[in-house]
């Protein structure tokens, strides 16, 4: 495959960035998108140029490290995938591909396609945990949890924190990310004990970090590689309103 790439290059947060053109030949259609980027970087290094920096880790779609806008869409044009699971067969030979970093006021750019998503970490630190005594875990059957509720909590817990929900939201809202963790914990007996404090603190931290309002456009659910449901947002709102009024 031959490709014409337009990739966002930017030295650091203070510099101005721009789309830079690259022509690439000999790309196998079975390569992943990141392998294609590796091929480009190999050529750039051989030519004495700086490689394009981007985040990645497991390359199996489960760690949430990778993430970029491919042709104007978070993780590219295929729904339910991280960009490491996007393959070049999804593009036509000779295609022009635009590659930009995930953007949001709360995700400052570090270099090229690499962004700082530590705002997510601080939201989790604000309340996305349970306070449990150390020691051996108790016998699992001592905690009555229905199978459906366990599955539902696990669906919410499947969020990998990639940031695609924020990148694709017109307001850069982190409602889906925050709500997934709020819902995951409030559905389980271990999480209910701190539910009131948790939702207030996590939503408060979300606002402090500078994420926008949720407009319920549902774009986040569409572009989430884990298919996290927007009903988690409704659950977070319910918990927030309950805790604000009654807590």
């Amino acid at each position: 495959m031959k490709l014409h790439l337009k990739i966002w290059r930017q030295r650091d947060a203070q510099s101005n960035g721009a789309l830079v053109d690259y022509d690439l030949d000999g790309i196998d259609q079975h390569m992943s998108f990141l392998e294609m980027m590796d091929t480009l970087n190999g050529q750039l290094i051989l030519n004495g140029d700086m490689p394009v920096e981007f985040d990645h880790d497991c390359r199996e779609g489960i760690c949430g490290s990778c993430g970029m806008m491919v042709n104007g869409q978070a993780h590219g044009p295929v729904a339910g995938l991280t960009v490491c699971q996007l393959h070049m067969r999804e593009f036509k030979d000779g295609a022009t591909i635009y590659v930009e970093p995930f953007r949001a006021a709360a995700f400052p750019l570090k270099r090229d396609l690499k962004i700082d998503r530590s705002a997510f970490d601080r939201i989790i630190q604000a309340g996305g945990f349970i306070s449990a005594s150390t020691g051996s875990a108790i016998e699992a059957n001592n905690l009555p949890i229905t199978h459906d509720m366990a599955e539902s909590a696990f669906d919410s817990a499947a969020c990998i924190g990639c940031g695609a929900c924020v990148a694709t939201c017109k307001n850069s809202s982190a409602a889906l990310f925050t709500s997934a963790k709020v819902s995951h914990l409030v559905k389980l007996p271990q999480g209910k004990l701190e539910a009131e404090k948790r939702v207030i603190q996590m939503v408060g931290q979300m606002d402090v970090e500078g994420f926008g309002h949720c407009s319920n456009t549902e774009a986040c659910e569409v572009k989430c590689p884990q298919g996290i449901s927007v009903l988690n947002i409704a659950m977070m709102n319910w918990e927030f309103n309950k805790s604000s009024l009654l807590g």
């Binding site: 789309l19 806008m69 869409q73 635009y98 953007r103 017109k170 850069s172 500078g210 309002h213 569409v222």
Partner: peptide, 20 residues
């Protein structure tokens, strides 16, 4: 007004495919 401050701007934007 608050959303305008937080909203991202992309050089090439096709996010419209994900919502009505």
């Amino acid at each position: 007004v608050k959303n305008r401050k937080t909203a991202a701007k992309y050089a090439y934007d096709e996010r419209k495919h994900a919502s009505k």
